[in-house]
Design a protein around this nucleic acid. Structure first.
Lengths: 333, 333
DNA sequence: TAGATTTGCACAAACGATTGCGCAATTTAG
DNA sequence: CTAAATTGCGCAATCGTTTGTGCAAATCTA
């Protein structure tokens, strides 16, 4: 059913019908009687305007592209959830692209979404490569989680430095000195800032020469392999700092297999929080990113961009969740 | 940049340009020389056709609506991942709707997606209410996970009955007789079929009067509360069968809080598998749904529908993953 | 009552692509 | 050399909306 058919049914012009249905009856002086009738019949025949035609005419799709490295990662799944909810409440829908952490797919996704004339883009970029963002002329873009220091695309992210600093300090104050940090994808902002936080804390406490940063990937395997390797060293660490949830899982798996008891023999803190962390044994001490807030703020910023406003990047504070995976150890004399 | 501008640049008609760019040069006898030039210049100015205009003209959007109860549930997140991947490889994009297990939102989502003229719908329905699906005339729809017995909308789902039967039988053969089943949302097909599987196994082994089905919701809280309650009974069960991953988490939480050791004092099996199950202590015995296959098959079926073919519902077999959360107990004399 | 306002609606041109049909120019046939 | 066939491309309609502008009819003013 098109507006034309509806107009025929009503024996009036599409113009009038359109104006009533878009709520412009007063502006164009359509009589209340006519308006009533239009609404009534439109309702009865449950007419719904063709959004494609509408989009074409209005040069606006009310659609936002959401580009994410891996929707099966709970962190991004949660993000997607709040983003979808926020956008829907503001009358927009989301076109989802999963890039599988592949820069080429990311680039392709951006092109596809541009072709579909999305009103804006919400991107959790793969990370290292930012070339394809530069050409994003005129299309509002908000970066999530990861961002690019050499470009001024607005972003919202966790205060990764702060969180890592806090976690590391906590370990040190519990008496740990030999703390290894297992990192994720290098040269991405969250990872590098977390590493910096770790380093700063170590330096502050005069543990500069004890710093140990290993790993190169946000995966369980990375956590697993590197933990095994660390345990085999003569100077095996007394505490592990895993820079995301999947790495932490890898650590736990390795520790378990090697018969290391947490926290008696080794302590562990994870960056990221997951619902099941409290059910692990021991419940895992973690740094929780404000996921919901990140999603909400990202959408807010995007809307300000859409309204032509200037916006500032947002860096949100994480919270430290103390559980039972860290033990107090005696300082070496 | 529009095709018109491109045509102007090339000093030819939009017709010719369009025909070359859609690969119809031979069909319309465009000379190879002209075609070359068009492609060249289009490439140089990197022209990309406006998909909105295209969609309107072709009456086809190459867009599929994906409606899901909760994208933050790893089960659905994984589903979304494979669906997105499969669809993209076939040239379609996905509009995502999260219904938060709310029938009204589901209905609204369907309406919105129809308005946007999606080519088809992939829906993991909330469950009980199917009214709004009936009117889905002419729009290809494939149901995932849950389906409606009173309608012949094609679906793909796990063999829930089989999985539950297998798990329950396993428990019984390990000597358990007092097995409680904590269910999810009643009157939804997966839940009811799982319950039936449980019941069938109990009956088969002559444990009809020991059947105990509690709970009403796919949430951690439901698992938690009901486990507590079960433990407080004089005839507390020796084994728990949790009908999804979140319920299982609730069980573990309650058991842990009450100091019950798994599997020494009580056994537990979960329907659904999650990566971290093997890291719990003890590693959780579980029934794994073929999530990736479900996503793939759903997309395949949808495409057959799009091609006007007749399709049959698909019921995929789950796999039983034996870990350490079930103990052998002596049969009561 | 004539002229000026106001009221109520419709015509037709966009938006940016695709495509049936037609019409020259060129080639082939006889 | 003329007629027929083929080649190469463009005109204009179309998809379903929205909207600037115009034009009668109704109402008001004096």
């Amino acid at each position: 059913m098109t507006i034309k058919e509806l107009a025929q049914e009503l024996e009036m012009s599409t113009t009038t019908v359109s104006r009533v249905l878009t709520g412009q009856e007063k502006k164009y002086r359509i009589s209340e009687k006519t308006a009533q009738r239009v609404r009534e019949v439109a309702d009865k025949l449950d007419f719904a305007p063709n959004q494609i035609a509408r989009n074409l005419r209005l040069q606006k799709t009310n659609t936002i592209g959401l580009i994410i490295p891996d929707i099966s990662n709970p962190f991004f799944a949660n993000l997607a959830r709040t983003v979808e909810e926020e956008l829907r409440s503001r009358g927009k829908m989301v076109l989802l692209c999963d890039t599988k952490d592949d820069t080429n797919l990311e680039e392709e996704s951006i092109a596809l979404l541009k072709g579909r004339k999305v009103d804006g883009l919400l991107v959790a970029p793969v990370g290292k490569e930012s070339r394809h963002f530069i050409e994003s002329t005129a299309l509002p873009v908000v970066l999530i989680d990861r961002y690019f220091e050499d470009q001024d695309i607005p972003f919202v992210t966790t205060d990764n430095f702060f969180g890592a600093y806090q976690a590391t300090s906590f370990l040190i104050e519990k008496g740990h000195q030999n703390i290894a940090c297992i990192q994720g994808l290098t040269e991405t902002t969250p990872n590098d800032n977390r590493v910096k936080g770790y380093q700063k804390a170590m330096k502050n406490y005069g543990l500069l020469e004890r710093m140990k940063v290993v790993g190169d990937d946000y995966s369980l395997e990375n956590g697993y392999e590197n933990t095994k390797e660390l345990l085999a060293r003569p100077d095996a660490p007394t505490a592990l700092f895993a820079l995301n949830n999947q790495i932490a899982m890898g650590c736990m798996k390795a520790l378990k297999e090697n018969g290391f008891h947490i926290p008696k023999e080794i302590s562990l803190i994870a960056f990221d929080e997951q619902p099941y962390f409290e059910l692990l044994s021991p419940p895992l001490t973690a740094i929780k990113q404000p996921m919901e807030a990140i999603g909400k703020v990202a959408v807010e910023i995007l809307f300000e961009l859409l309204e032509g406003k200037e916006v500032d990047p947002q860096i949100l504070k994480p919270t430290f969740i103390q559980r039972d995976s860290v033990s107090e150890i005696c300082l070496k004399p």
